[in-house]
């Protein structure tokens, strides 16, 4: 299996708090990987470094052999954990914005996904429900043809039916040559679509293994195993 992402000795602190502490990890392409850990375990910090939005204090990350920077940003599709789009814009304006920004963005694909949901692209973002806003943002990300998709809490705060839609959209649209990283604490909802999981705690890497390995070795779901490992 060829490695897409290579992380070596990666650390990042905020003041005296080490958010990510000396993590080394290699992740292959073609997999859907869950980035799991309790609140404050460093998931979002790691994700922001993968995107080049934060600079590591130490260590390195390469994506497809290229150090994270302008060269990788064009190849990484990122869904942040909060809205960043201007609420006063219409969906169509946002689509054009994405066309300008990302050479790998397919407007046709985005429009057909929106149509499948019955969302009118001429409406302003602020008129959308929370669930629909999440779906629109996911559609924007999944309509890119990237090497790496990084989804930070894509199903937080939406109802179970919308979660199913979001997970299905991820499965149906990701490119098998790409890698998808999903960070979440709603493990039971996503574990059916994950190949592998990375457990983090206090900025450390606790475990990196496959979902079926956990089920085979421990006879329990990833969700149940997570509760055991991170029991308070």
């Amino acid at each position: 299996m060829s490695e897409l992402i290579e992380i070596a000795g990666l650390s990042k602190s905020y003041g005296r708090v080490a958010a990510v502490n000396n993590i080394s990890l290699k992740l292959p392409k073609g997999k859907i990987i869950g980035l799991l850990g309790p609140n404050g375990s460093g998931k979002t910090t790691l994700i922001k470094m993968l995107n080049g939005l934060l600079t590591p204090d130490a260590g390195s990350i390469t994506i497809g052999g290229v150090p994270v920077g302008p060269g990788t940003m064009a190849r990484v599709a990122y869904l942040p954990d909060r809205t960043y789009l201007a609420e006063s814009k219409t969906i169509l304006q946002v689509l054009d914005f994405f066309c300008d920004f990302y050479a790998d963005f397919s407007k046709d694909k985005a429009l057909s996904l929106l149509a499948s949901l019955g969302i009118d692209p001429s409406v302003k973002l602020k008129t959308l429900s929370k669930g629909n806003k999440e779906k629109v943002q996911l559609i924007l990300v999944m309509s890119r043809n990237a090497d790496l998709y990084v989804l930070d809490e894509p199903i937080a705060g939406v109802d179970p039916a919308a979660r199913d839609y979001i997970l299905r959209t991820i499965i149906d649209n990701y490119n098998p040559e790409a890698c998808v990283i999903i960070s979440t604490h709603l493990i039971s909802d996503v574990e059916k679509v994950l190949d592998e999981v990375v457990f983090m705690r206090y900025g450390h890497l606790v475990l990196y293994t496959s979902v079926d390995n956990i089920r085979e070795q421990h006879g329990k779901s990833v969700d149940a195993y997570f509760r055991e490992v991170f029991a308070c």
Binding site: G30, K31, I32, D164, L167, R168, I171, D172, P176, K192, V193, L194, D195, V211, D212
Partner: peptide, 13 residues
């Protein structure tokens, strides 16, 4: 892919 979508599981699985 069709089967994976129907079952709502990962295509690799």
């Amino acid at each position: 892919r069709e089967y994976a979508a129907e079952a709502a599981v990962n295509p690799n699985t």
